[in-house]
Structures are given as structure tokens and as C-alpha cells.
Design a binder for these strands. Structure first.
Lengths: 184, 184
DNA sequence: ACCCCGATGTAGACAGCGTCTACAGGAGTT
DNA sequence: AACTCCTGTAGACGCTGTCTACATCGGGGT
């Protein structure tokens, strides 16, 4: 296996195990058994390496939402659950994927992977006759709005702010309310 | 004015002007005209200083949603618009407020300010007979879900991902769809 | 066979960062 | 007057990302 791929793998493991702060170029190099300058032979800098990691994160996320069984409505609800579940299961990867300061937002592979996720989700939304769709709303706008709702749910949950004093909802119960709002 | 308050003010200006990455202890100290070690006489570390800045951010946000005129429904929609508008107008502050790695999440003043925002929002939601409320959903759960939807909208917009190829919605149009989903 | 050159990896250096420690002055108390 | 706490300064340390100089090695052209 090439050093480049080994660096990406090592970074992914470090990310999942130690969190996003622990993913430093020098730490990755040490964990991969190379010198601290070796990563710069394969990536222009930290942002480019992390972009490669985040790109694989989007690919993993897409693989979850793709080819789900069931009716259009079932597939959409399954995709929504899957999105939140991905974030809660891989919090560090989820954070990296949406941290503009850590990745190279101009990376074509990264933006392609990200758009792939949204496009697939938009197709799922378009196949379900939601109340919003019946009222004539733009379907891509509905998809963006629902995606944002799921995204905010995951983000706020990871942030820890949804559990206030004397109020500790589960992510599932909040997600159920969200899906109720959109799917009727 | 005391040095402590001057440091908070300087950090806020630096945050708004240069972004969250530029808010370094040494940079704040230089901008405030003190030595690089002076901030540590007033704050235990960077996290505590940034927590004070974020606390004021929550206070500013709360001031926007408080005492809005009109009917309960009008006040809720105004608060929703206000939340997204705050994020889009103060992107660096908004990012800082939800960056757990930058602030001290155990700071009592910070968590109190954050809960104040959510509690105020929850009161606004409880005063409006939404379709979800009529169907018997927990009102605090509805508030959390709607808050998450607004939050995700702001976050994804700042992230830049809502504008895909051949699809460039405005934040307002996406927000309108979101409000439609929750308020019917 | 030889040479050369590009690719790959190493080691050292540099500036910037947060944080710790030693030191200096100044204000207030006893 | 002496002592103590508060505030500020200056230097140091280890960490980071990144740059540069140098070594090594393998394949292609003469």
C-alpha cells in the first residue's frame, strides 16, 4: 500500500479515536511510522490531507443512504434516520466534514462527494408527496430545508445543548417530531 | 475601563473583523496593547476568554428574540427570522458560540446564557398552536426540533453547501419552507 | 554500462501558538 | 515602615504547520 493511502487511513483512525483536535500532521506521520515531513510529499498541506479524509466520510455517508429498501416514504425516513445516526456514531468525522477551516473547500473531489450526498437526498425527497410538495413548494427547496433540519438536530445534539435542565429528549424523539413536521 | 473588559471587547472586534481563527491570545493582547502574558492574569486560558465573548454573543442573540411585538405567531416567526439573521450577520460569533473546542462548556455564565436563549424560544413556541402541538407532541420537543431546523439552516448556509450546481436558494426562501413545515 | 533525474523520505529550521514561571512595581493594610 | 496581594512584563518550553537542504533509490536515454 502506498504511503499516501496509509496516511489517509491513519488519519481516519486517529480522527475516530482521538477526535478532530488530535489529527495533526505530525501525529499522523508518527502514527504512520514516517517522518514529520513525509506527508508534505503527498499533500500540499494539512487541509489537503483532511480533505481526502472528509471525502471518504461523504462517501461512507452516501453509501448509507443509497439503495435503501421499501417504499419511497420508507426510504426517505430511513435516510433521515441514517443521517442523524451517522453523525452520532462518527461525531469527529461529522465535525470534520463541515469544518471549513480544516478542509480545502475548493477540492473538486470533496465538493463532488458533498453534492452527491445532497443530490441523492433530494431525489429521495422528490419521490415522496409531502404536504409541502402538495402545496407547490420547490422540491429542491424542501430537500434543503429538511436536510438542514436533520443537520441541525445532529449538530445541536453533539453540541450538547438539546438537553437542558429538567428536559432530556432523546435524539430519536426529536427526530420523530421533525419528520412529523415535514412528512405530515 | 478594566483590562479584563478591554480584552473581551478587543476579542469581540477581532472576532467580527478577522474571523474565529484570528482570535488568538497573543493577537488579542497585542491589539489591546498589553503583553502576551497579560490575559492570563484575568482568564485561566484562551477557553475562558472566548467563553466570555460567546456569553455576550448569546446575550445579544437573546436581546433580539426578546420582547418582539405582535401576536404569538408573529413573534415566533420574527424570532425564527432573527435567529437565522443573527447567524448570517455575525458568522464568526455564531461559529464561536457552537464550537465546543474553543469555549469552556462548564462555564456557568455561558451555559446559563445558552439555556436562556432556548428557554425564551421554547416559550414563544408554546404560545403558538402549531399542527404539531395539536397532535399532542411535547411542546419542548417541538421547540427543540424547530430550533434545530433553524440552526441547521444557518449552519449549512454559512458552510456554503445549500447552493449546489444550478440551484441557488436564498436563505429566506429555505426558511419560509421550514416555517411552513412547522407552522402549517 | 553509465549517468542523470525525478520521485520519495529525512532532518533541521523557523515563526506562531498556548501556557508556565520568574521577576518587577504599586496599592492597600497592619 | 514593612508586608502582601494584584497586575503586568519578559522569557522559556513544547507543540503546531510549513519551508528548505540533503540523502536515497529506481527507471530511461545515451
Amino acid at each position: 500500500m502506498g504511503t499516501r493511502q496509509r496516511l489517509i487511513d491513519t488519519a481516519s483512525e486517529l480522527l475516530a479515536g482521538e477526535g478532530v483536535d488530535a489529527v495533526t500532521l505530525r501525529g499522523i506521520a508518527k502514527a504512520a511510522g514516517v517522518s514529520h515531513g513525509a506527508p508534505l510529499r503527498h499533500f500540499s498541506g494539512r487541509a489537503e490531507l483532511l480533505s481526502a479524509v472528509a471525502t471518504r466520510g461523504y462517501a461512507d455517508l452516501l453509501a448509507r443512504g443509497d439503495q435503501l429498501p421499501g417504499s419511497p416514504r420508507e426510504r426517505l425516513t430511513a435516510a433521515c434516520h441514517s443521517y442523524v445516526d451517522f453523525a452520532l456514531t462518527n461525531p469527529a468525522m461529522f465535525e470534520l466534514m463541515f469544518r471549513r477551516d480544516l478542509v480545502d473547500t475548493t477540492d473538486p473531489a470533496l465538493s463532488a462527494a458533498a453534492s452527491g450526498v445532497f443530490d441523492t437526498f433530494a431525489v429521495l425527497v422528490a419521490a415522496v408527496p409531502t404536504p409541502l410538495a402538495r402545496s407547490g413548494a420547490d422540491l429542491r427547496l424542501v430537500a434543503a430545508s429538511l436536510w438542514a433540519a436533520l443537520h441541525g438536530l445532529a449538530q445541536l445534539w453533539l453540541w450538547g445543548g438539546l438537553a437542558g435542565a429538567s428536559f432530556a429528549p432523546s435524539p430519536e424523539s426529536a427526530l420523530a417530531v421533525t419528520l412529523d413536521a415535514y412528512l405530515g
